[in-house]
């Protein structure tokens, strides 16, 4: 109403420069890598529940290895985004537990530590010829029971590590788009997409039945995630601030092209390619779906992270 008639037209004619995008690409990589790190653990546990170990011969070191690499990328990008990286230690020395950043950092650190222990045991057992006569390696090879005890704890921790970023976003009162209740679900689905897609790329030695199951997880996750995006975009009740934010992905908006490329690459294409790969039993198509989903997921996360920061707050 305000801008529709001349008498109420209102225009800023003098102001200082406002901050642009504060959390940018570094945070996108942080979230994307974390989704892979936790996703492989969650999807891996589901596969272990459904299939025999023999169908996934290198499971015990492959899953912790992927998770370890992805989690270290996530932690590295968390660190380099800080303007005072050495003061990261203050999160442990002066913790403020109302902050999801603090709680997340503590849980993610513990999670990464446990994944590292599982990786060391998994590698020692998976490659028995390496350091065959080394005392430490022998001891690690005999620690299979520790690996089995850590597995459920790591699986349990994978959920809060996946979800805490959604709580940081919920605490970001200035960005109403992130405060949508769907954010928590989207974060979980992102982990399923990233986990399933990554496992599709590295599961060459696993049985066809397992690969089919991973593809089904990918299809399920991209379908629901896409439906939530569309629901939020077209149909849901939105605050005026969230509505104004979504204007950046409307036709002609700054991030319109990136958003729709993300939807096609990350969700629509993997859905159809996934179905095709199951129907025709073609593994290469499933791998294309996986790569497409990982690229699309990154682009979608990037758009959703940046657009609320474009809105002037004052």
């Amino acid at each position: 109403m305000q801008e529709t008639i001349n008498a109420t037209q209102s225009l800023v004619t003098l102001d200082v420069a406002l901050p642009g995008i504060i959390w940018g690409g570094i945070i996108t990589i942080n979230m994307w890598a974390k989704s892979i790190g936790t996703g492989v653990i969650i999807v891996g546990a589901y596969l272990l529940f459904r299939h025999k170990k023999e169908q996934m011969p290198n499971y015990r070191w492959l899953i912790p290895l992927i998770a370890f690499i992805a989690l270290n990328v996530f932690l590295l990008f968390t660190l380099i985004d800080l303007h005072q990286p050495y003061r990261m230690i203050n999160i442990f020395l002066h913790p403020h537990f109302t902050s999801a950043i603090t709680v997340g950092a503590w849980i993610a650190s513990l999670f990464t530590l446990l994944v590292s222990v599982m990786l060391i045991i998994g590698l020692a057992s998976g490659f028995p010829d390496v350091l065959r006569h080394n005392g430490v390696a022998k001891k690690l090879r005999g620690s299979e029971s520790l690996y089995d005890k850590l597995s459920p704890i790591v699986l349990f921790l994978a959920f809060p590590v996946t979800l805490y970023t959604a709580i940081i976003m919920a605490e970001s009162s200035a960005r109403e788009l992130w405060q949508a209740p769907t954010e928590l679900t989207q974060m979980f689905l992102a982990a399923l997409i990233a986990g399933a897609a990554t496992l599709l790329l590295f599961s060459a030695k696993w049985s066809d039945a397992v690969k089919k199951d991973i593809t089904l997880v990918l299809i399920f996750a991209v379908t629901f995630s896409f439906l939530i995006y569309m629901g939020e975009y077209f149909f849901s009740f939105k605050s005026s601030e969230a509505e104004a934010t979504l204007a950046y992905i409307h036709l002609g908006g700054t991030y319109s092209i990136q958003f729709w490329v993300a939807m096609i690459l990350g969700y629509i294409l993997p859905f159809f390619l996934g179905i095709l790969s199951i129907k025709e039993n073609t593994k290469s198509v499933a791998k294309v779906a996986a790569v497409s989903a990982l690229i699309g997921l990154y682009l979608a996360k990037d758009v959703w992270l940046k657009i609320p920061q474009l809105l002037p707050l004052s």
């Binding site: 504060i22 985004d81 800080l82």
Partner: peptide, 20 residues
Amino acid sequence: ERCIGCAGCMMACPYGAIYM
């Protein structure tokens, strides 16, 4: 002296009152 420069506060302040 304690701030780690994470910019979380800049994301949270609805008034855009915090700067780096």
